[in-house]
Design a protein around this nucleic acid. Structure first.
Lengths: 124, 124
DNA sequence: CGGGATCCCAAGCGATACTG
DNA sequence: CAGTATCGCTTGGGATCCCG
């Protein structure tokens, strides 16, 4: 520890970049934003209303990250008063399949999981 | 099928339980643990060695959560000295498909994303 | 061997206020 | 309208020590 305070990161996890990308795309807010934008382009405040639990700070951060990863497009549609529209990109659309399969998995197996949880919690 | 409409339940998100389940299964450590256990049953310390970056605490917590959700099975194979083996369950195996598709997505589009990121960071 | 119990810090998030 | 800035708290995680 006479070293830096940087945590010792070693080489081979599932692959850091991949993990990182999944985090930025599948997290709580990103997932919901993508879900919404897949259905329709939306303005900032429309997204806030569509996802009531998100704060402006988190939404902004989420959108920036998604834009950075090129799954969402930020389009200024008017300058005064400023209007911004967020749209899913073609790359973003390719996420639909994987995400939907994931959601279908949870939908299909949620009962099993909840039963398992109840049992686990009960035994403990 | 494309009845895109989310029920737009009052104040509810993409569905908290689903989100929650995804979190517990797709997070950094769970993903790597599942990945490993899909290939072979493993003991606790084998997992630590297979995933060098994980701490004992995180690994324990991860395994407990996976066990609680019934995607991983905890099997005591010896009592003295105690030996525990973790195995993927049948439910856990059904996660392979969705997860693999996700990883294939990242693998396929990582170049695009990295280019986009570089461009984004450069412009900023 | 497979953990449980602590301490502790930094990152993240919510809440709030302000701006072009 | 669509953000930026700041602050304070919560908490997840690493590090460490110990036990059956």
């Amino acid at each position: 520890m006479t070293e830096t305070n940087r945590p010792a990161i070693d080489g081979l996890e599932i692959d850091a970049p991949h993990r990182d990308l999944l985090d930025q795309v599948l997290d709580k807010w990103p997932l919901q934003v993508l879900d919404r934008l897949c259905e329709q382009p939306s303005r900032f405040n429309e997204l806030r209303r569509a996802i009531p639990a998100v704060t402006q700070k988190s939404l902004t951060a989420t959108l920036r990250r998604l834009e950075r990863n090129c799954v969402v497009d930020r389009v200024i549609t008017s300058s005064r008063p400023i209007a911004v529209e967020y749209r899913i990109t073609s790359l973003g659309k390719t996420l639909r399949g994987p995400i939907d399969e994931l959601l279908q998995w949870t939908a299909m197996h949620m009962p099993d999981v909840e039963r398992a949880r109840a049992k686990f919690d009960d035994e403990a």
